[in-house]
């Protein structure tokens, strides 16, 4: 369970996030949706401590994360996995080494144990036979999957995904979504996903918060979202005319 309490963040005089509060549950896929520039990435970076909030607090299972210093956050970090928008794989390491990296850094596992664990994780994301390739030799979808494997290799309790399926074809996107959902349920992680993909919203949106101009505009689940009367949310979901017409027909 992750709780946000009145998070505000500005860059200089420009307010990006204003007073955001929300709760994200364990074993569920929690979505943060909103248009480009609405502050999704900034919010996620504030949650994981890559950016410092101006005010407000982030709690991980009741433990106040935002009040800790860099050093005090260290043990927390090993419970957090994050998949970045572009994958952020280490260019100088091959696929297997990328997935083994967090293990090499923080555990005393032997090389064989680490390799086994890495290969388990790669199998989990349906990647086999690519272990010796370098990131530059992978397609976008494969990179995302390797990044997921790397994020889950140290068995984190909290998983963060920044637009996990942007830039992927619809089928691969759904594959990735399902994978995230399965992993979340299997490992009972608290999972937060930034997205503006409507498919994901409808498919895996157990809990959704909608950001607009740095404020939380709406919150609910995928069952409630299409029925919402919130205008900004409607404009966001039904950006396509065809979709709107289809919905109105039903």
């Amino acid at each position: 369970m992750i709780e946000l309490k009145n998070i505000s963040k500005s860059f200089g005089s420009k307010a990006i996030l204003e007073n955001i509060s929300a709760g994200f549950e364990k074993g569920k896929t929690n979505l943060v949706i909103g248009g480009s520039g609405s502050g999704k990435t900034v919010l996620m970076k504030c949650m994981v401590g890559l950016l410092e909030v101006n005010s407000g607090e982030v709690f991980f299972d009741g433990r106040n994360f935002s009040s800790l210093s860099f050093k005090e956050r260290k043990p927390f970090r090993q419970e957090i996995g994050m998949v970045f928008q572009g994958g952020a794989l280490f260019d100088s390491l091959n696929v297997e080494r990328n997935v083994m990296f967090p293990l090499s850094m923080f555990t005393d596992m032997t090389d064989a144990e680490k390799r086994d664990r890495a290969n388990d994780c790669l199998k989990r994301v349906n990647l086999i036979n690519v272990t010796k390739l370098f990131p530059s030799e992978l397609s976008g979808g494969m990179k995302k999957r390797v990044a997921i494997a790397r994020a889950i290799s140290p068995t984190p309790k909290y998983l963060f995904f920044d637009e996990p399926n942007s830039g992927l074809d619809p089928q691969t996107a759904i594959l990735i979504d399902n994978l995230i959902k399965e992993i979340t349920e299997e490992y009972q992680t608290t999972t937060v996903i930034n997205t503006h993909d409507m498919n994901s919203v409808l498919e895996i949106g157990d809990k959704i918060i909608f950001l607009h101009e740095g404020k939380k505009w709406w919150e609910g689940s995928n069952r409630e979202i299409t029925a919402s009367n919130n205008n900004e949310l409607k404009n966001f979901i039904f950006a396509s005319k065809i979709l709107r017409e289809l919905m109105e027909k039903n």
Binding site: K45, V48, L50, R73, K74, F76, R77, Q78, I80, G81, M82, F84, Q85, G86, A88, L89, F90, D91, F101, P102, M105, F106
Partner: peptide, 17 residues
Amino acid sequence: GTMRVTEQIDALEIMGI
């Protein structure tokens, strides 16, 4: 610089490195 703009540095930080 490349590691910075492709978020590889963020990826290190998030792991606590």
